[in-house]
Structure formats: structure tokens, C-alpha cells
Design a protein around this nucleic acid. Sequence first.
DNA 1: CGTTGGATCTCGGAA
DNA 2: TTCCGAGGTCCAACG
Lengths: 261, 261
Amino acid sequence: MKYKILEKPNCEEAYDLVKEGLCKKAMITLFSCCKIIYEGRALSQLDFGERLIIIKPDGSFLVHQEKKVEPVNWQPPKSRTKVNVHDNELFLESYRRTPKERLEVEVKKTLFASYSVAKDYAEIELAGYEKDMGDMIMKKPYLIEEGFKPTAREYSTEHGFIDILGKDYDGNLMVLELKARKAGTNAVKQIKRYLSDFENPENDYLKDLGAEKQKIRGLLVAPSINEDAKELSEKEGIEFVSVTPPKELKNDKKVTLDIFK
Amino acid sequence: MKYKILEKPNCEEAYDLVKEGLCKKAMITLFSCCKIIYEGRALSQLDFGERLIIIKPDGSFLVHQEKKVEPVNWQPPKSRTKVNVHDNELFLESYRRTPKERLEVEVKKTLFASYSVAKDYAEIELAGYEKDMGDMIMKKPYLIEEGFKPTAREYSTEHGFIDILGKDYDGNLMVLELKARKAGTNAVKQIKRYLSDFENPENDYLKDLGAEKQKIRGLLVAPSINEDAKELSEKEGIEFVSVTPPKELKNDKKVTLDIFK
DNA sequence: CGTTGGATCTCGGAA
DNA sequence: TTCCGAGGTCCAACG
């Protein structure tokens, strides 16, 4: 059977349903009054209350309260779920190693329980974040300014990776820090740190980049910038360029291309 | 009615159930073949497949595939859910402002649908992270070393907040950076940044702290440290002290106290 | 494996 | 409201 639903199952019925669901690699849901203990990276306990329990075929284990996007307790994929009955109560246990973590759910009463084998072969297509922004700037450098030429991406320095490195029309070195969302003071400080790498005479970045006697410009590239960051960037001589990450799905492109065939 | 479950509801039945669930501020779950579009901070699309849809009474909207802990699509609390029927298909829409975001779910076929009004008054108690560690060190400074005296917490500097500031037995200034998990190189760099604030003669932190001619010690406090970070800390003269965040629940204490009454 | 860094991060607290 | 940092962050990419 592809799925099963039980209304107010008793302890044994719920046990059988979960067992069957696990065996069939199904999505299992229980709406139950339960008490939860977690032990692992941290430690938590949650007294009895009605919650939605989800066990996924990949081993993920979620307990959702009626508020918030995030589960109140969970276990990551590849965790192992065990089911037991003690004293006419259902116990669900999920554990994993590295790190060692254990979740124990004591189920007092279940309003309904279900399992269902999901057919889902689609993958989400997502666009509109830092990576897309970088791709776009590499392809359309004029979005930064006329004459800008990117020379490197993910350029490694002592203080981390510079998102994009390039040169302006006059050959000056340009250090670009990208943010897909509103930029804060941290982004400005990050650029300052990169620039300090170049200022340090011990480093021979400049020679490597053939920009020994050139000016070095630090640019913050983001859709917008907050007031503090704006102030700081002006004070520190960091330029701000407003660029919004492209929101374009591959499928959209395909569709467009198909239309033009 | 406190809850309702429908097996293979048709479009109108599912519509009525969702409407009723929203009205009653219930947790709503649907296991449906659906297609999803999201527009907002980013942009996404997900073709038809069977997924678990959850609508919470706080306005949160989740769509879970059979893998991962995180939902494939979601809307945060306080979003508004709208339900519609078009051409014998159910449409769920969740939207919010600031930022403007919209999630649209086209439901082709529903295996089962439910709503239930949850009674859950319990709140999770969680222990074992940075805050607990800070509390513990302020209370038991000898865990750092004999003679250590914390003088400030969340001490503000140009480069951010120092977790704990204090003095050693000889009156030297101590800068403590806490990490509840294994510390990496970033933690060491963070301390270096704080120390550079003190070295900068423009700042008068030293005078404020009455430690003008004292040594300044940087300490990384964490349960453990990775190899890279260990190397860097030794090179930079940052000391490492192993402290594990306490895993103690308030309730445990209460229980203990109750027992002793 | 462990490490690194982004995320529609989420969530909570403070200004 | 915005901002900022912690998180059992999760997650994917990379060494």
C-alpha cells in the first residue's frame, strides 16, 4: 500500500504504522501529545504537549510545535529511528553518531498517524543570491563601472577569499566584496581587512598582480547598504556600488530560448 | 471539532478543510502532489511532486520534501494564507510584506488532509551553548585559571563585543573569546582583532581599564580547538583554555530542589 | 572524514 | 522598526 492513515490509533496500532512506514521508506507523520528529551551537542527537554512529528525516509526526524518555521526538536538526515512500546506508551527514538546525538519522544496519545511513500523527482530551482551576483558581474563587468575587468574570483588572501578581484580602466586594482542582501558594517570591515593585506609589504600580492604602484580600490557591491555601513565606507574610502542579484531561473531561460526557436 | 482528517479529498473538500483549519487556528497538514513558485528575497520554482504541506496557526507555511531537515519552500510566521479553487484545482497562497514575499502552491491531487487545534503550553528548555558558558565563567572564574577576575561582559570595542574581559592574578588584562563548539581559526583571528584595538594608541581603552603598562593576554575558551586554529594561536601568542559549556537544565535543578524540600 | 562559508538562513534581544 | 549575533544552526562544496 502506498499510504495509510489512522485516526486515534491506540499504542499498538501507531507502533505498527510507524514500523510499516519505516520499512517502506515512507514519510511518516503523527499528531500526538508527547514529551521530548534531546541529548547531544546540547541538551533539551520539552514537557507534554500536542505536536506534529515527521519522520522522513532519509532519516530526518522533526517535531513541530504550532509556532515558528523551525522544528522545536529534530535529528538530521541519516539518523536511525527506533520504535518501542513500554507500559502501553509509544516511544520513538532517533540517534546518530558523529556527533553522538539522541532524541527521545514519549507519545502519550495520538490524534492521527499516517505514512505515505512520496513520488517526488523534481528539484527546486533557486536564484537570487551571492553566487548569481558573482556570475552576473563576471559576465557583465560594466555593471560595476565602464572599463572594469574582473581578473579573479575567490582570490585567496590571509584574511579569506576576495569575492572578485579586477582592474579599472586605468589599471588600478579593485577589490570587490559582494553581498546579496543589504550590506552592514561588517562587509566594510571585511574589505578593510583585504586591503590591509595588500598594504602589508611582507605580502607580495602586488607583484603577483602586477599592480605595484597602482591605487587599490575597495568596493562594496550590494543591493543596498545600511546607514552605519554607509558612514563607515565613506570614512574608510570604500566605494559602494548598488547591484541587485539577478532573479532568473534556468527554466525561464530555456522557455525564452524555446520561444525564439 | 478539534480535528478533522480526510482521505483523498477532492478539490472542494480539501478547500473546505483548509478554510476551516485556518478559521480555527489549527495546524493544517496536506500530503499532496503540488507545484510551487516562490518570489521574494530570492526566486524559486519546483515542479510537481508529492510533498507534505504544513500551515501553522502563527502563519508559518512549510513544504517538506522527503529529504532534509529544512523545508524546500516556506514562509515565516505572520504570513497570510489564502485558499482558492480554479479549474478544479486547489491553490494555496502565502504572502507577507517587509520583505514582500509570496509562495504559491498549485495542488493537483491530495492523498490526505488534516487540521487539528494543538494544545501545547510547554516551552523547550535548552542548555549547552555560549551563553551558559559565559554565565558559568562569570560565576566560576577559576575555571579559566587561579586568580582570574572577570571585570566586564560584552565589552564593546571597535571590532565588536569582547565576550569576557578580566584580569589575571598579576593584574594583566585578559581578553576572552568564548566558543561553545570546537574553535576554528576564525576565533583566533577574532581575538587578534580585539588585541589590535588595545595596541592602537588612538584608543584609550587601556586608560579606561587602568592597565596602561600591563601585558594583554588573549584567551580562546572552547571545549576543543582544531589543528589549524591551534597552530595559529600558538604563532600569535593566543592562549587556549578548554572549557565545556554546562549542560544543565533549569528543570533539573528545580526537580533537585523539590526533592530536598 | 573535517573545514569553510552562504542562507529566502531563523530567531531573539537591544537600540 | 532595524540591526546584530548565536545557532543542537543546516547544507553543499571542497580538500
